[in-house]
Write a protein that binds this DNA or RNA. Structure first.
Lengths: 221, 221
DNA sequence: GTCTATACTACGATAGAC
DNA sequence: GTCTATCGTAGTATAGAC
């Protein structure tokens, strides 16, 4: 059984274990837990099936190690900005709004980046039917960012009650999430085969404009 | 091979074929194409797996029949309103905005409804890695509604250029889609175990408010 | 039309050589 | 630590009885 999941969490996984995780994320993202096969994962990693047993105990152990690795990857995307916000609390609503837009743009650009596909697919599956893997990812990266965002929205839109602010946060997340999760629809609506960089910029610009509108205390009835 | 996919499309499938499709959507939604097993689908339908060969030719034939059925179901949700809009074109921007909000609320309520889970999961998988099944669903239900929505947005926000209007449509769709696709996040952010009807109403109300804001020609910089 | 029986392939897990 | 070999189970597809 070796050191198991702790290895993956501390990003000190052996080269082979890391290769297995990489290949496993591809397979799990594409085919789901049941559909992925340990044989194929091992083959793609240039090793054999027994290595999975050795390093992760079982197919499920490998799956959880993937979740930890993904949490680490997504965390790395948000951590610098998130940390900066925590160390430099917004002085006023204007600053808070700027922070929120930056958080959202950060997230949207990640959703648009090619390398987020396999990570997002993995997480998307977990969203539909959460397992232990979702708990780990949520606790590690989603909860902290959501907390920060909620705090900022409270400053930016003080006239909204708590629940309405929570809904507003989900509205904004949805606008970014759709870029990855409904990618096939997005590219069709944007009338492109694949989302090129010009289209991506238009999407980010539009998202910023929409988010700015929603996060401004306008003359809302 | 029998009549194959045409049966499913015309919703005149035999009772057994319909039971197979129902059970198959559950299995495909939960485990994906590879993960689902024809044995289990047949068992859940109270028959044996040779019936699948007979009615649909193969596992893939069954999968496509599920896609057709799903397109039919989702189409039924939108068709009455969609048809009404086509027959009664909006007289002014105000009417167009009312239509758009109604379309969006319609969609959001569907995303929140329990029975949309298996259908959405099936479609979500296809969005990530589209196959022939996605083409069928897109052509049948998504394309018409998107066309209508784009036409309405052109009336409602004439100052935006074509591409910005397309982005805006995706923004709005994202706000509704997230209710189902990131359900695990939504329930945590809304601080409920499951999304009860009161929470659902708050989500719909917030979505309407946000969409109304985005669809108004405000003092946007 | 629906069933049983079966051919063939692939799965995850484990034992044991090195 | 990584390998080969193997066990028991489950997968799809097909042939043929009724």
């Amino acid at each position: 059984m070796a050191a198991m999941a702790t290895l993956a969490e501390s990003s000190q996984a052996s080269p082979l274990a890391q290769r297995l995780i990489d290949a496993a994320i591809d397979q799990f993202a594409e085919a789901g837990f049941a559909g992925a096969s340990t044989r194929q994962i091992a083959r793609a990693s240039g090793t054999n099936m027994s290595s999975i047993t050795y390093h992760f105990g079982s197919k499920e152990g490998l799956y959880l190690a993937c979740a930890d690795y993904i949490a680490e990857q997504i965390g790395a995307v948000h951590q610098p900005l998130h940390e900066h916000i925590r160390r430099n609390p917004p002085a006023d609503a204007e600053a808070a709004r700027t922070y929120l837009l930056a958080l959202l743009e950060n997230f949207a650009r990640f959703m648009l980046a090619p390398h987020s596909q396999r990570l997002s697919q993995f997480v998307a599956r977990e969203q539909q039917r959460p397992t232990e893997a979702f708990e780990r990812i949520y606790a590690r990266v989603m909860a902290p960012v959501l907390d920060t965002a909620l705090g900022l929205v409270a400053i930016v839109r003080p006239s909204l009650d708590e629940r309405a602010r929570r809904v507003l946060v989900m509205n904004c997340i949805g606008m970014a999430l759709v870029l990855r999760i409904a990618r096939a629809c997005v590219s069709r609506v944007m009338q492109v085969e694949d989302i090129d960089s010009a289209t991506a910029e238009a999407l980010v610009a539009g998202l910023r404009r929409s988010a700015l509108t929603l996060l401004s205390e306008g003359p809302n009835p």
